[in-house]
Structure formats: structure tokens, C-alpha cells
């Protein structure tokens, strides 16, 4: 059976999204059969390279999780510049700086391990102009 991480590889590793040719809605990470906005079915999607930048639309902070996860863990609905909306883990984000509208950037991380293989995707971190701003 094809593992899911293989099917989603272009989205997960290269931030490739799928734009509806009829209405411009962007699906990420799945390539859907129907368009969620204009309901075109079957929808025609074109692949687009998404920008790594977006903003937080909503978030929750998970306090108690199984030991495979770091806790507290912030999970957010993020909208990328092209309009794609996705659930993302936030990393290197303090509770004080987290707010709706926070500008974030994609941060490539290990998502989980599948029988010894690290599977990667993008999590999100506050957008910093330099990698290490001493003022942070």
C-alpha cells in the first residue's frame, strides 16, 4: 500500500498547492476531486508553488499530550499568502508572542517517524527577518 506520506510528498516537501482553475481557490495539501469554494466537480486544479509566508487566523494551545509531542503545543489555522488555509504546528513561538494575525513562515521539521523513517513537512515559526534576532 502506498504510504500517505508518499502521496503528499510534493505538498509536504516542496509546498506545492493546487489552485482551482474555475475560481482560484487554493487547496493544500490535498489535491481534491471537487472545489470546496465553487463546487466544480470534477474540478481542474493547477499546481502552484506556495510562498512560505502566512499569518495565524486562529489557534489553540494544547497542554497535555502523549509523550511523542512537545507540550505545550500551539496548533494554528494558518493562511498562506496565496490563500491556502491549513492546520499547522507552531514551533519556537512563546505564548506571549502568539496572537491572531501573527506573521509566520514555514519551517521544515520532522513530523513523525514511520518505522524508522523520518517523515518531514512544514511547521510554522514567527517570521523573523534574520534567523536569530537577539531582540527575540
Amino acid at each position: 500500500m502506498t504510504p500517505e506520506h508518499w502521496r503528499l510528498r510534493r505538498a509536504n516537501d516542496r509546498l506545492i498547492g493546487f489552485k482551482c482553475r474555475s475560481c482560484g481557490w487554493v487547496s493544500f495539501p490535498e489535491r481534491r476531486k471537487t472545489c470546496k469554494r465553487c463546487r466544480a466537480a470534477p474540478a481542474q486544479f493547477e499546481e502552484i508553488q506556495l510562498s512560505p509566508y502566512g499569518k495565524v487566523l486562529s489557534y489553540v494551545i494544547q497542554q497535555r499530550l502523549p509523550e511523542e509531542f512537545e507540550s505545550p503545543l500551539a496548533v494554528a489555522v494558518i493562511e498562506l499568502e496565496e490563500g491556502a488555509r491549513l492546520y499547522g504546528h507552531l514551533v519556537e513561538t512563546s505564548a506571549e508572542e502568539l496572537h491572531v494575525g501573527l506573521e509566520v513562515e514555514a519551517d521544515y521539521r520532522v513530523m513523525y517517524r514511520d518505522e524508522g523513517l523520518n517523515v518531514y513537512s512544514y511547521k510554522f515559526a514567527p517570521r523573523r527577518n534574520v534567523a536569530h534576532d537577539p531582540a527575540d
Binding site: E70, V91, Y108, R109, V110, N118, Y120, K123
Partner: peptide, 8 residues
């Protein structure tokens, strides 16, 4: 961190 490795 836990979710970083030589690839990331």
C-alpha cells in the same frame, strides 16, 4: 529540538 535532524 526533537523535530530537527540532519535533513532539516
Amino acid at each position: 529540538t526533537r523535530d530537527e535532524d540532519v535533513v532539516t
